[in-house]
Structures are given as structure tokens and as C-alpha cells.
Design a protein around this nucleic acid. Structure first.
Lengths: 134, 134
DNA sequence: ATGGCGCTTCCAGCAACTGGAAGGTCAAGC
DNA sequence: GCTTGACCTTCCAGTTGCTGGAAGCGCCAT
């Protein structure tokens, strides 16, 4: 199977598949003509990767998950550990974003948004403002 | 003032200040010896940038905000517009992360996390799973 | 044989820094 | 006067995960 077919079947774009080969996530053989020769197994793997990435796992996480996926002797706690750590990272990101959102919303509320130059948003960003964190 | 002092006073690391000069956010003069010569105004600007970045504004947003900050004839609606657009982006990110979090939490809950290989997390990532989105 | 796709490689770029190497400067101490 | 060490300078590379584009083959149909 050529890269285009695999892309269609797995939902992972050709460019990305080549990149994944570069970093060793998939290792297709080559045909006589130099084309990458994929099997159904590769399609499978790539779809797996696509889903893991969609859940926000890093490439390194994906490498680990893929290895566990293919390891008959894995223990589900290994998988769970990776997922839990990832969940922590997500929570952290959400927390930061929500804190930004809170500040930003507040400032936006206070800003008249008219034709006058006075603006609480700029005032807050200004170092003259004593409400600086750190 | 040398870069180190400015870094201490503004909270922006020297490397970052040099980078900001590279991309034209600050334009310090140079001393005889080739050192960057900063003024209090630069400290001010850099602190402003530091805060804007901490609120998650992109560098391009920062460029815009800084220009508005220094423009006596700005209209607060211009600032507000930038902030509102940024808030939208943040909301979008939060939404995506929360959706990931929801899926991930669910899977983690379902996973025994023991010594057996069976794992709902891997099962969900597997393309054999019909619950695929997209 | 001529299109027009599809495949290949390699190089560059995105965002926003950050680390490190190689080297010049400056003030202090002996 | 010389060394030490903390600064400063520039430039290059790496981070994350692709994505776009150029140049150049292969393959199939007309």
C-alpha cells in the first residue's frame, strides 16, 4: 500500500506519516521503486497514533503507548500511569488558562471600549500598576 | 543600564530581551563598548511585555498592545478588541483541553491499573474500537 | 509521448524562546 | 600589572510536531 492510501485509511496525512517514520514511530519497508510499502498493520498503528495525539499525548507518550499496545505482557497500570500523568498536565494547562481568563475577563469588563484612550487593560499591564504579581 | 540590570528590574531574562530586540520590540542604543544601553523606559516596556506575555498574548498581540500603549490617541475599543479576541482563543483552548480531560478521565476510571494486560485506554485508542470520532 | 497525479528527498518555517560555545570587557583583589 | 570572575557580545542549534514548497522521479492513461 502506498502512503496516500494509508493516509486516507488512517486519517494521518502523508507528511505526518513521513515524519513519524523519521522519528521511528513506523518503519515501513520500501518497494523496488523506492516507495514506502505499508501494510494493514501500519494503517492500524497510524490510526492509533492519530487518536492518541488527538487526546493530547505527546509523541514520546505515543511511543510508550504504542510499545505497551504491542506488548502482550504489559500491565494495565503502566498504561494508566502514562494517562494519569498526562491528565495532570492537562489539568495544569487548564488551570493556567482559566487564571488568564479570569484576569482577562475582569479587565475586559472594566474597559469602556469606546473612543477614549483610557483603558484599564493597558493600565493593568503597565508597570506603574502596583497590582503586579511577582 | 546594562542588560542584566534591566533583566532584574523588568523580570524579563537577558536572553529574552535580546530576542525582543531581534524582533524589534525594544531598540536600545549601544554604548562605546558595544553593550546595549537601556533606559528606564526600556525597563518599563519590558515589564509591560512580561505581563502581557503572562496573560498569554502572542508576541504580535504584544506588539500591537505596546503600540496602543504608547499612542496617546488610541481608543480603548482597539485594546478591548485585541483582548476579546485573545479571550476567545483562550476559551477555545480550554474547551479542547476539557474535552480531552473528559475522555481521558473516563478511560482512566475504567482502567483497572493492575498487573493484567487488559486496558480500556489502549482499547479505546485501538482502531478496532468502533467509538472512533471522525 | 505527454499529462497529471503520486511518490521521493531536502530545506525552511512556525512560536517564543533557551542553552551553549567562543570570545571581548570591566572592576576588584593581590 | 595581572589574574580572576562576572558581565557582556554574537551566532548556532534545539525545543514540539508538524507543514509548505521546490526539485525531481514513477506510473498510468490517452
Amino acid at each position: 500500500m502506498n502512503i496516500g492510501d494509508v493516509a486516507r485509511q488512517s486519517g494521518v496525512p502523508p507528511k505526518t506519516i513521513r515524519y513519524y517514520e523519521d522519528i521511528g514511530l513506523v518503519r515501513p519497508k520500501r518497494s523496488e521503486n523506492g516507495y514506502r510499502a505499508f501494510t494493514q498493520k501500519h494503517v492500524h498503528k497510524l490510526a492509533f497514533l492519530g487518536r492518541a495525539r488527538a487526546l493530547g499525548f505527546t509523541i514520546e507518550d505515543c511511543r510508550t503507548l504504542l510499545a505497551l499496545y504491542e506488548d502482550e505482557n504489559r500491565e494495565s497500570m503502566q498504561v494508566k500511569a502514562v494517562a494519569e500523568e498526562h491528565l495532570r498536565q492537562i489539568d495544569e494547562k487548564i488551570g493556567k488558562l482559566q487564571s488568564m481568563k479570569a484576569t482577562l475577563s475582569e479587565l475586559i469588563d472594566k474597559c469602556a471600549g469606546d473612543h477614549r484612550p483610557d483603558c484599564p487593560i493597558l493600565a493593568d499591564l503597565s508597570p506603574n500598576n502596583p497590582s503586579a504579581k511577582e
